[in-house]
Amino acid sequence: MKSVSLLIFMLLGFAATAQKTSGEISYERVKTWSRINNRMTFLSKEEKERAATTWANNDEQKQDFVLLFNEKQSYYSYPAKEDLSEGGYSWQKDEYKIYRDFEKEKRTDIIAMLGKTYILEDSLKVPKWKVMNKIKEIAGYMCMMAVTEDTTKGQKITAWFADNIPVSAGPELYSGLPGLILELDINEGDVVITAKEVKMREVKDEEMALPKKMKGKKLDTLKYEQLVAEHIRDSMKAHRNPYWSMPY
């Protein structure tokens, strides 16, 4: 009888562990244009006025995203199915699909920017995170704070990760922490991506499989960073916001 009870206890423990390494997370991404524009001292008066007019009634741009994950890989993009707008239309969004293969330490990103679609394929290099002595609750999970920097874009990155979901995944291009990232803050509130709901379920590899056909210009991490840096430099010289045509 004792051996049967022990077996049941072990199976329940295994199921709980497995459950915490596979699931689906719904995020809300909030971009505040006024904060972004105010940060850019190089913008011309005309550019600032254009931005103020464009975003006068919609300063906060909100978008939904979904992260699928298991121990081996993750996939981050827009929800597969979205509700139609009030007028019955579904707006087409720019291509943005982020794949991570933790077993093979490989990244594949399909990103539309600068008028083209780029396919970024390379080895997975995680940021140099510094874990801080701060915690807060997000979507029912206690999370620890970690910080790093995007040196290409000059952005301060703050992540809040749940170490009791032991998967090194996260939203956007960020991963590499000893727990799943449930909130990502870019430049102290310019953009904040927060988990709204965490569903622990079995996620099959097929749900996160790469498309059989990928159309776009291929680059590696170095070429991608050079492209971004060059675009930012050109935009600064022209006194315009580089993020009109590129993810912030």
Rank of each mutant, 00 (worst) to 15 (best):
residue 74 S to L: 05
residue 156 K to S: 06
residue 122 D to G: 02
residue 129 W to I: 03
residue 218 K to R: 09
residue 24 E to R: 10
residue 108 T to R: 09
residue 45 K to M: 04
residue 199 K to Q: 06
residue 230 E to H: 04
residue 176 G to Q: 13
residue 147 V to G: 04
residue 246 M to D: 11
residue 210 L to G: 07
residue 104 K to T: 15
residue 84 L to Y: 14
residue 58 N to F: 07
residue 229 A to E: 15
residue 72 K to R: 06
residue 110 I to C: 00
residue 186 I to V: 14
residue 159 A to N: 07
residue 144 M to C: 02
residue 162 A to G: 08
residue 179 G to V: 06
residue 184 L to F: 10
residue 90 S to Y: 12
residue 77 S to A: 15
residue 113 M to D: 08
residue 18 A to E: 15
residue 166 P to E: 11
residue 87 G to V: 08
residue 42 F to W: 15
residue 164 N to W: 06
residue 5 S to M: 09
residue 105 E to N: 13
residue 93 K to F: 08
residue 26 S to G: 09
residue 122 D to H: 00
residue 219 L to M: 15
residue 17 T to N: 12
residue 189 G to C: 04
residue 169 A to V: 09
residue 125 K to C: 04
residue 184 L to H: 06
residue 180 L to Q: 07
residue 39 R to H: 12
residue 46 E to N: 14
residue 37 N to Q: 11
residue 168 S to V: 03
residue 142 M to C: 04
residue 19 Q to Y: 12
residue 195 A to M: 03
residue 175 S to V: 02
residue 79 P to R: 13
residue 66 V to E: 05
residue 212 K to S: 09
residue 55 W to A: 08
residue 82 E to K: 12
residue 57 N to L: 09
residue 106 K to L: 06
residue 46 E to A: 11
residue 80 A to Q: 15
residue 70 N to R: 07
residue 171 P to K: 00
residue 240 R to S: 13
residue 134 K to G: 03
residue 113 M to R: 15
residue 118 Y to V: 01
residue 159 A to C: 08
residue 130 K to D: 11
residue 129 W to M: 01
residue 61 Q to C: 05
residue 120 L to V: 09
residue 209 A to F: 01
residue 144 M to L: 07
residue 1 M to N: 14
residue 228 V to K: 09
residue 93 K to I: 05
residue 8 I to E: 08
residue 93 K to V: 13
residue 148 T to L: 07
residue 204 K to D: 15
residue 109 D to W: 14
residue 134 K to Y: 07
residue 78 Y to R: 07
residue 126 V to S: 07
residue 167 V to C: 02
residue 132 M to L: 13
residue 160 W to K: 07
residue 146 A to R: 01
residue 132 M to R: 09
residue 84 L to V: 05
residue 4 V to M: 10
residue 20 K to C: 03
residue 207 E to P: 01
residue 188 E to A: 03
residue 122 D to E: 05
residue 146 A to W: 04
residue 28 E to M: 01
residue 72 K to M: 08
residue 79 P to C: 06
residue 213 K to R: 14
residue 80 A to T: 15
residue 143 C to W: 01
residue 51 A to W: 01
residue 141 Y to G: 03
residue 73 Q to M: 13
residue 172 E to Y: 02
residue 6 L to R: 14
residue 40 M to A: 11
residue 146 A to L: 04
residue 182 L to H: 05
residue 161 F to N: 10
residue 197 E to A: 10
residue 101 D to G: 00
residue 37 N to E: 01
residue 26 S to K: 14
residue 84 L to D: 15
residue 242 P to L: 02
residue 156 K to Q: 11
residue 35 R to E: 05
residue 15 A to Y: 11
residue 25 I to M: 06
residue 5 S to P: 01
residue 50 R to H: 13
residue 18 A to F: 10
residue 160 W to V: 04
residue 194 T to C: 03
residue 159 A to G: 02
residue 158 T to V: 12
residue 196 K to N: 12
residue 45 K to S: 12
residue 6 L to E: 13
residue 2 K to E: 12
residue 98 I to G: 12
residue 39 R to G: 13
residue 211 P to R: 07
residue 214 M to A: 04
residue 120 L to G: 02
residue 187 N to P: 05
residue 9 F to K: 05
residue 173 L to A: 06
residue 101 D to R: 00
residue 214 M to W: 09
residue 89 Y to L: 08
